[in-house]
Design a protein around this nucleic acid. Structure first.
Length: 154
DNA sequence: GCCAACGTTGGC
DNA sequence: GCCAACGTTGGC
């Protein structure tokens, strides 16, 4: 199984929002980057675990974990003219984009901030910390997962 | 709100 | 297929 990191702006969708969903799960829609889509489509499997990351906020960082409960399927928001994720080039036959379903697992007692991650020497090579990386979905190694879970006291 | 670092688009 | 212009992300 694989580990992942999923970014979300807490103003739009936070870990508390996920926890409040029926069944504590929701579809992870709005991915509009090919690299991120390909990873989601090809490599994200049911049972994979992911960190929930809050971006573009006062304290960016990892706030908890969730689990992939449904593998990639068509992202219908690409076909919905009213959606902010509407893509005029998407068609029914070729929706271009896909999404997975994730289920809330755990919220950390305190956030593992981006700052704390940067200060951990063992995480130097982590994708998230590499300069210029703006992917909203990225792989996390089993080793990184362990280290971060320990930092969270989880 | 600024800006660096991308990714995407489209003219040629 | 090149590359300039434009759009987006996301930390600060």
């Amino acid at each position: 199984m694989n580990y992942w990191l999923l970014k979300s702006e807490p103003d739009a969708f936070s870990i508390d929002d996920l926890r409040a969903m029926p069944g504590k799960k929701d579809h992870w829609d709005g991915i509009r980057n090919y690299q991120a889509r390909n990873m989601m489509r090809d490599d994200m499997k049911k049972g994979d675990m992911a960190f929930f990351y809050h971006s573009s906020c006062a304290v960016p960082g990892i706030v908890g974990t969730c689990e992939v409960v449904k593998e990639a399927y068509d992202d219908f928001t690409a076909l919905d003219k009213k959606s902010k994720y509407f893509d005029p080039k998407a068609t029914k036959d070729n929706p271009r984009w896909c999404m997975v379903d994730v289920k809330y697992k755990k919220k950390f007692k305190s956030i593992v901030s981006l700052d704390a991650l940067k200060q951990n020497k063992k995480l130097e090579s982590m994708t998230l910390l590499k300069k210029g990386n703006r992917l909203s979905i990225m792989p996390v190694s089993a080793k990184e997962w362990k280290i971060i879970m320990a930092m969270a006291g989880a």
